[in-house]
Design a protein around this nucleic acid. Structure first.
Length: 758
DNA sequence: GAGCTGTTCTTTTTT
DNA sequence: AGAACAGCTC
């Protein structure tokens, strides 16, 4: 298919099949979205503003490539960071094109699941030291194994209680060949021994999947020479969702997968990086752009929020140009002051009740907070008011002891080399049984050869009736949980064996492996204990019925968990100094807190209410509104200090107490007013502050007055290159860079050099 | 192992 | 700012 294939031929060909360009879906896209869908550069990154239809473009791209450019779905790899995102893409694709078969979208999934599939199907894992029968271990298991090795070898490893975190965070350093851990202990020796032990027990950690996958992909590319590899190997197109969230290992994997041949199309938003504390580097969006020499397109138009919300959001934008809106001004943003978290919960309960009575469904409403610990009060009060709510805390199979144990039994059964798991199964205080040992090690020989199986048969084979102790109080419940799990597993395994002629051992292994990657979630919000509603095994499809039956509930979640979601009405609580932003030591962390707040406010479609407490119970927070509230222009706000129902309270605990708190509140308000005024006075260049700054800092601040002139002052930054000075005061300096947009810096760090002496 | 001083982290969470 | 830990001394 030649490169000039274009509009004409498309139009000519449209009689035979519709073609995506002629569908309603395509016509509904705006010009930016269309450009992104149609772009066929070798590498392209789409800088997608919040709410600009990023996933719609990704899906449009898939359909365009498939229907108009004849790229088979099998030749596309679509990489996401969460299983939820992968499921959503396939689900939305099916909505437009319902005849997509599951094996057509094998290449759609998280980085880890795609890596796993390739290690199992097409890469020579033996060359790396594992066999095709390897299993996947989760981070807790890896930590346990590391602990065991530390003990056995008498290693000196500091902060053992934070070992899990350390294993993850220092892994990259070790890979890069650094000599010693920053804590000057045996950490790197531990990595080495751990790796050997994982090979011995034939299992891979999450990180191994990516790292080994990358290594083998590179070897494979070398082997097949510089000349084109045969057509079957590797994807023709690689599409990446939320690319700003990738880490270094994922970029290397991506690069290896591309093999210098596949085209890359990645969408992401540098303004929504909120997980960099977890190891996502500096600025992955631009790093990827430069790494692959990618063309950058933008999606500037937001379809979600009203103009007031977007105007506020624009104040927090750190990269790129301002977000363009499509909607009317709408409701202003409410800023409300409450006395304490308890008063606020009461207020929220009443407010939500009123909204619901006036016809708003609960599912349109969400409450966001910075810390998990803040949800407790809300839960209690909402319970009392009878308001249905859903907490976004995930529960995993590991929280259900009997299933946790059962998974270990199955793990050993499909991988007898896993001595760690075998020991844990037998040593389990609740279910450990010596007799399990033979059943697990003989599983492959006996039952494992079968071509179909039922839950009852497995239950009997493992002798679970005795192992679960029929006389114990929890037996009934345990049996039910185990049978539920086995039934789901058998259904998936039978299907798998039918389609791939594998045996039971292989099918169970596949199921257990993908369950490990899928997190083995259970719905914590559900009342039914232990309902394994989302235990997706190998090859099984997303449960359609679970989604349609979503009950009407208010969503309670952390700001982090809110990413990717949208609601008609959003309340963000605890917008106090010391809470949002959470006290943080360095400037990069502060920037991330700002992005987090940005993510939070941009979830709201029509109504946004931000509140702060005079008396926050949370440690660290102080009774002042967050400085972020001062960053929002006053004309966008609707300040409702002290609220109306709260006045009832002061009458309630009448007398000294109430008056005292009223006085307290009044004083806070006065202080706030004073601060606001001084803030306004300072912005165009406050003489007083500048003078003091000049004394402390020396030269750079000298001539505040000249800055009013439209003279361009150039600055330079180690990372961002040359830019122009926007503003500065005694603490901060703000500059704009062509590639990176506006950034603020702490003068004390001396990162920015002013080039034009004034 | 008590008592001291210095260091490090505290929150957010996916695979 | 305070907890939890590491490493030292006695």
């Amino acid at each position: 298919m030649s490169e000039q294939t274009n509009g004409l031929q498309q139009a000519a060909g449209s009689f035979q099949k519709e073609g995506f360009q002629h569908t309603e879906e395509f016509c509904r896209l705006n010009e930016y979205q269309k450009a992104a869908v149609l772009d066929e550069s070798p590498a392209c990154v789409v800088n997608a503003n919040v709410g600009s239809g990023k996933t719609t473009v990704l899906i449009g791209k898939i359909l365009y490539l498939h229907l108009d450019r004849n790229v088979p779905l099998e030749k596309m790899t679509v990489l996401t960071f969460t299983n939820k995102a992968a499921d959503e893409i396939v689900e939305r694709l099916r909505k437009i094109k319902p005849d997509i078969a599951p094996d057509q979208v094998q290449g759609f999934g998280t980085f880890h699941s795609v890596a796993l599939r390739m290690l199992k199907n097409s890469l020579p894992v033996e060359e790396a030291g594992w066999t095709k029968e390897f299993t996947v271990m989760d981070p807790d298991e890896e930590t346990d194994l590391a602990m065991k090795i530390i003990q056995e070898h008498g290693l000196k490893v500091k902060y053992k209680n934070r070992l899990k975190k350390r294993l993850e965070q220092e892994y990259q350093n070790w890979l890069e060949g650094k000599a010693e851990s920053r804590y000057r202990d045996d950490m790197y020796r531990l990595y080495q021994l751990l790796e050997e032990e994982k090979k011995r027990q034939n299992k891979m950690s999450f990180a191994d999947l990516l790292r080994v996958g990358e290594e083998l992909l590179r070897i494979k590319a070398e082997d097949s020479g510089v000349e084109r590899r045969d057509e079957k190997s590797g994807p023709a197109w690689i599409l990446v969702d939320e690319v700003q969230d990738s880490d270094l290992m994922q970029i290397e994997f991506l690069d290896a997968l591309r093999g210098g041949k596949a085209k890359i199309f990645a969408v992401g938003d540098p303004n929504q990086v909120i997980y960099s504390w977890r190891g996502t580097g500096d600025n992955m969006f631009y790093l990827i752009k430069h790494r692959f020499g990618a063309k950058e397109l933008t999606l500037p138009v937001n379809y979600r929020s009203n103009a007031s919300i977007l105007a506020a959001a624009n104040r927090f934008l750190q990269f790129g140009n301002r977000i363009q809106g499509t909607r009317e001004e709408g409701q202003r943003i409410t800023v409300r002051n409450h006395y304490d978290p308890f008063q606020e919960a009461e207020y929220l309960a009443e407010k939500i009740q009123t909204l619901h009575r006036n016809g708003k469904s609960y599912r349109e409403i969400a409450v966001f907070y910075r810390l998990q610990s803040q949800s407790g009060i809300l839960e209690k009060v909402f319970d009392r008011y009878g308001i249905p709510y859903e907490l976004s805390v995930k529960k995993t199979l590991k929280d259900i002891p009997v299933l946790n144990w059962l998974v270990k039994v199955l793990r050993v059964s499909v991988n007898p080399a896993d001595t760690q798991m075998a020991a844990e199964v037998l040593a389990d205080p609740g279910y450990g049984e010596e007799s399990m040992y033979l059943r697990m090690t003989e599983f492959s020989e006996e039952t494992g050869k079968r071509e179909s199986v039922s839950a009852g048969e497995l239950f009997a084979y493992f002798g679970l009736r005795e192992a679960l102790h029929p006389s114990s109080a929890g037996y009934q419940e345990d049996e039910r949980l185990v049978m539920d799990f086995l039934e789901k597993m058998c259904a998936s395994c039978n299907k798998e064996m039918e389609s791939s002629q594998g045996n039971l051992t292989a099918a169970v292994r596949k199921f257990i492996n993908s369950s490990a990657l899928y997190g083995m979630k259970t719905d914590a919000g559900e009342k039914a204990p232990g309902d394994i509603s989302e235990c997706e095994g190998a090859g099984s499809e997303p449960d359609e019925k679970d989604r349609t039956a979503e009950p009407d509930r208010v969503s309670l979640m952390t700001l982090h968990a809110s990413k990717g979601l949208e609601f008609d009405t959003v309340f963000i609580i605890g917008v106090n100094q010391g809470m949002i932003p959470l006290r943080c030591k360095n400037f990069e962390q502060e920037e991330e807190e700002r992005r987090l707040f940005f993510v939070g406010i941009t979830r709201a479609e029509n109504n946004l209410e931000l509140s702060w407490y005079t008396n926050p119970g949370e440690p660290g927070a102080i009774g002042e509104p967050s400085r972020y509230l001062r960053m929002i222009p006053e004309q966008l706000l609707n300040r409702e200090d002290a609220g109306k129902p709260e006045n009832v309270r002061s009458g309630e605990n009448a007398g000294g107490d109430g008056r005292k708190s009223d006085l307290h509140q009044l004083r806070k308000q006065v202080q706030e007013q004073i601060r606001l005024k001084s803030e306004h006075a300072r912005r165009p260049g406050s003489a007083g502050m500048a003078e003091r700054g000049a004394h402390l800092q020396g030269e750079t601040v000298k001539k505040e007055k000249e800055q009013k002139e439209p003279e361009v002052i150039r600055v330079r930054h180690r990372k961002y290159g040359e830019g122009i000075l926007i503003s500065e005061d005694d603490m901060m300096i703000e500059a704009e860079f062509r590639e990176y947009g506006r950034k603020k810096f702490l003068k004390a760090f001396g990162e920015v050099e002013v080039l034009d002496a004034v």
